[in-house]
Design a protein around this nucleic acid. Structure first.
Length: 432
RNA sequence: GCGGAUGUAGCUCAGUUGGUUAGAGCGCUGGUUUGUGGUACCAGAUGUCGUGAGUUCGAGUCUCAUCUUCCGCCCCA
């Protein structure tokens, strides 16, 4: 019987990393965790599967992208009842509604877990991807200042990860919705979605799609004017008001966004742009919306986004639970960062010191040295295979281990400079 | 799901109008160096040419099917 060799491969869109890539991912996650915890956000996790009724309760449009879960032996006609989550916001809403009596409000949490969507994969877009959501949710009323705090914390995290060249796109749905409403347009939601595509399909494309929605020439012209407003300061409000549309929601939105942007700018140095065409796909957002974008690259999609929602859990509890949150695309940022050269892989293990066996005989000295180093928190690996020193050094070099410790004479070699010195295993520490 | 491309060594690719034992660079293994890696030099290994069928004396090269991956659309982190 001949065994056929199966060509090993992962299913496209399900990322898997080499050790040196995984180290970068872990560093990102460690940094994000440290930043969010420094602001007092706690961590939660939720199961990867949810009931379909929960997943479908908020975003009906997404259902075609969702993976459902069944058993191989299930009856043929048995309908799927559960699915893999496609974001962390909907499970979070369920979590809050379910544990409402045990949580302390305003509830601030971050959550770093994978999500699944059955889309066509490409650069920065996967079928399984890890994201980190950070939200604050309250009962009845959530302080408006959080609309500025959340993007400030998220941008701080991006900066600390090493994504220095970013911009926060910010808007408020009330402005565009109020404006469109004030123009007498009936299909407000659809119109906003079309305007959101302005950068992608251009003015002519938007004009065409809006006339399909039966907007008249005057309405289309006004919509394009507001959608093109894009300012790095507070001047957006006057520009919108100068278009001459009167509407209460519009005015409320302008005031909310002005206050939010003012506070944000005092909290965070990452530049912002008020972009009136920014709407975002999820329909649960009701106020401020955000996207974080890379500056000076070809990658046009966002690496994160979010917004304010008035009542995310309305289908699951009678309590009114307003919140604001953002999502960081960890998998996307890693994939894009590596591809664009914004990040570079380094060491292939966390090892700081490799202890080698110079004479290829007694290994007890190696173990003693390693114990002493580890006792002081230095990540130390022992080359137990012994053998030729050339081979042992090559191992350290291949894994990009920064220091090699020679067991018999406590000689320490810096692999980057090649420099060698005698060192004391009880006091020496690596330069960080 | 729709439209367009792609598929040759671990990776990036070359392979002329179909013609003997299919190539390069990088990487890998070994040596130059019997206590010193990374540089240099020398030597070596590696392929059912995506899969299946067809045309032909003969197919990596032509035809058809199928799968894969990539790029758009949709959607979004």
């Amino acid at each position: 019987m001949s065994e056929k060799i199966i060509k090993p491969s992962v299913i496209t869109g399900f990322p898997e990393y080499l050790p040196e890539e995984r180290i970068l991912e872990q560093q990102m996650m460690d940094t994000i965790r440290a930043v969010f915890e420094s602001h007092g956000f706690c961590s939660i996790e939720t199961p990867v599967v949810e009931k379909l009724e929960v997943l479908l309760s908020k975003s009906a449009d997404t259902n075609k992208e969702m993976y459902v879960l069944g058993r191989l032996q299930a009856e043929e006609k048995e309908e799927a009842k559960m699915g893999l989550r496609y974001d962390l916001t909907v499970p979070f809403a369920r979590y809050v509604a379910q544990h409402e009596n045990d949580l302390v409000f305003p509830f601030k949490r971050y959550q770093m877990q994978p999500c699944w969507r059955g889309e066509r994969p490409k650069l920065g877009r996967y079928r399984q991807f890890t994201q980190c959501d950070v939200d604050v949710i309250a009962r009845e009323k959530l302080a408006p200042e959080y609309d500025a705090l959340i993007p400030a914390v998220v941008c701080e995290a991006w900066q600390k990860i090493g994504f220095k060249n970013i911009v926060l796109q910010i808007s408020n749905r009330k402005i565009l919705a109020g404006f469109v409403e004030g123009l007498g347009v009936e299909k407000v939601g659809e119109t906003l979605r079309v305007l959101d595509k302005l950068k992608k399909i251009g003015e002519d494309g938007v004009r065409e799609m809006l006339s399909e929605l039966k907007l008249n020439e005057k309405q289309i012209a006004a919509c394009l004017k507001i959608a093109k407003i894009n300012t790095p300061d507070l001047s957006f409000a006057d520009k919108v008001r100068n278009l001459g549309v009167q509407n209460d929601m519009l005015e409320l939105g302008l005031n909310e966004l002005t206050e939010c942007v003012k506070l944000y700018a005092s909290l965070c140095k990452v530049p912002y742009r008020v972009d009136m065409s920014l709407v975002r796909g999820f329909d649960y957002y009701t106020g401020t919306t955000y996207e974080v974008q890379l500056v000076g690259t070809d990658f046009a999609d966002s690496i994160g986004g979010g917004g304010r929602y008035d009542n995310l859990a309305s289908t699951m509890t009678k309590s009114r639970l307003p919140g604001v949150g953002m999502s960081m695309g960890i998998s996307r940022a890693l994939g894009v960062g590596l591809k664009l050269g914004l990040m570079r892989t380094g060491a292939k293990s966390p090892t700081e010191v490799l202890v080698v066996n110079v004479e290829d005989t007694d290994k007890s000295k190696m173990l003693t040295v390693a114990e002493k180093l580890r006792a002081r928190g230095i990540k130390t690996e022992v080359y137990l295979e012994g053998g030729k020193l050339v081979k042992q050094l090559k191992y350290a070099n291949d894994k990009k281990i920064p220091y090699v410790w020679f067991d018999i004479d406590n000689m320490l070699k810096n692999m980057e400079t090649g420099e060698q010195t005698v060192a004391d295993p009880d006091t020496w520490a690596p330069n960080k």
